[in-house]
Design a binder for these strands. Structure first.
Lengths: 125, 125
DNA sequence: CTGCATCCCATTCGATACTG
DNA sequence: CAGTATCGAATGGGATGCAG
């Protein structure tokens, strides 16, 4: 019963099923999609514009992962042309708020980070 | 002056320098390394054990990224055999606390997530 | 013990073209 | 509009061997 022994259900354990879930939410595009959806319901194309640089393919697969994990709800309106809405679930909103704090902190402290990078690179030459 | 126009320094903008920093901290191993270091100073091998499944190579490169970004401090003790300590900087600790809330939320809500996954998979067949 | 260098594979990712 | 299909490029990541 060592204090550091891996427990099942603990994300530090290799086989913990939390890991893939966490990875979907913290993935390159997952973070930004969650953040964008904090602004409210969005259509596919709106997300594509708001999350600058994401490809159709990656947006699609990111949304599918988040939907499967119960973070995002998908609503298909039976109209032509197609109209699909994405919104956060309650769980998704809780995740998204934490995620937002993360990238906001990075944005706020960016000057410090850039300075640290510069110092590191100079130290290495 | 549209409300959704990309601003420089905004992580939603394709060229925002925050993006790679955020990606280091939210990477598969970055999250767990930050979380482990919240427990205090750790040696390389201790991290290797605590972050179950990480390879030497990935732990090494993860620590380098985090050090370069000013999240982690590295202390080399001039002894034989080598002894290297890693600890969070103030900025790293702030990041790590947010990161921890993220994976703790995932751990806590895992049953809901697994149920959502199951429902999604059944819906698809 | 701590890591770097190398090799190599699997997966991810992006661009493009196409469909309902 | 909202995707899927496909393909090549890039990256992530593991295994091994070696050095300080």
């Amino acid at each position: 019963m060592a204090a550091t022994a891996p427990r099942p259900g603990n994300v530090f354990d290799r086989n913990c099923p939390s890991r893939p879930v966490l990875e979907h939410a913290t993935s390159r595009w997952g973070v930004l999609v969650l953040g964008a959806l904090l602004g409210g319901t969005r259509r596919f194309t709106e997300l594509r514009r708001e999350v600058d640089g994401v490809s159709e393919k990656m947006l699609s697969s990111t949304l599918q992962s988040l939907e499967r994990d119960g973070m995002v709800e998908r609503e298909v309106l039976p109209v032509i042309p197609p109209h699909v809405n994405y919104r956060l679930t309650d769980l998704g909103r809780r995740m998204a708020r934490h995620v937002r704090r993360l990238y906001q902190l990075v944005e706020e402290t960016l000057p410090d980070v850039l300075a640290a990078q510069d110092a590191y690179d100079r130290r290495r030459r």
